[in-house]
Amino acid sequence: MSGRSETINVRMEKPKRQRISKFTYKKNEKWILGSIIPLFLLLVWEIAGRAGVIEAHLLPAPTKIVQEIFEMGAAGTLLGHVGTTLYRVAVGFLLGTLAAVLLGSAVGYFSVMEKLMDPLVQAFRSIPSLAWVPLFILWMGIGESSKVTLIAVGVFFPVYLNIVSGIQGVDRKLIEVGKIYGFTSAETLRKIILPASLPSFLVGLRSGLGLGWMFVVAAEIMGASKGLGYLLVVGQNTYSPELVIASIFLFAIIGKITDSLLKGLEKKSLSWQDSLSNQR
């Protein structure tokens, strides 16, 4: 009897382990599939570097770049540079998003504000990012204020555009339903307009964060003494391609992590939608 019960338990546990294995794979499927091409490219790059197809003084092998990152970590300088860049991006992102939410909501909701403000905002949006650098240095010097302001400017425009587009794209029939139920303006805004425009707003946040990471490079060229952008300049001046590419790698990794956090927030916030992404 004891042997039979053990056999039954083994048979019952086997499908259970298979279900757990399938669930684990399904949960990590995005990361598993998403890492195939990058790992393949890194492998090809490493083989080409070791075979001498790629000149090491122009494009070092991935192992050399990883070694450079570990050496900075062991020396205690890596965390300082990464932390400084993260701080600048975070503060600039928050300030840019706050300004975009306030102005974008007013422009999207009130037609008078759109006629007054939108032409000016669109004109400013056409100005290249680097054109702001000398002006901000003149106004605020080369300290943190000018760097954070430049990042906030980069974040502002995509968030603003998506908020305005999201609010103005709300189905008019939904507004009419709110009027039938006697919603006040505040209730219409809270129960109809904000949920309906949320998808566009969240896309704007991700776009703004991506531009924030781009603008921080320009910001840290403005006389910085710390940060990943500063390491790019140091690598260029000392002719250290491994330092330059290590900085680029760190930008890519940290940028991807922060974007994944926003994407997770987007998925949770929009779980009520009957969309294709929620069915996957």
Score class of each variant (00 low, 15 high):
W132R: 02
V148R: 05
W272L: 00
A123V: 15
Q279W: 11
R125T: 05
E176C: 09
P195G: 06
L59N: 05
T24K: 15
S197A: 15
G141K: 10
L43Q: 02
L138F: 14
K27P: 01
E144T: 14
L130F: 15
E144Q: 13
M117E: 06
L98G: 04
F23D: 12
G255W: 02
M1F: 10
K30N: 13
P62Q: 07
Q18S: 09
W45H: 08
Y239I: 13
N162A: 05
K226L: 13
W45C: 03
G3V: 07
V233M: 09
G3N: 12
V44F: 07
R19M: 14
F136I: 07
I36F: 09
F201G: 00
E220Y: 04
P134D: 11
S129E: 13
E68A: 08
A61W: 01
R172G: 05
G49W: 00
A152H: 03
G255V: 07
S260H: 13
F124Q: 08
L174C: 04
G229F: 03
T188A: 06
L59W: 01
F157Y: 14
A224W: 02
T149P: 01
L43R: 06
W272Q: 08
L231F: 05
S271Y: 07
T238N: 09
V82R: 02
K179D: 10
S126G: 14
K256F: 14
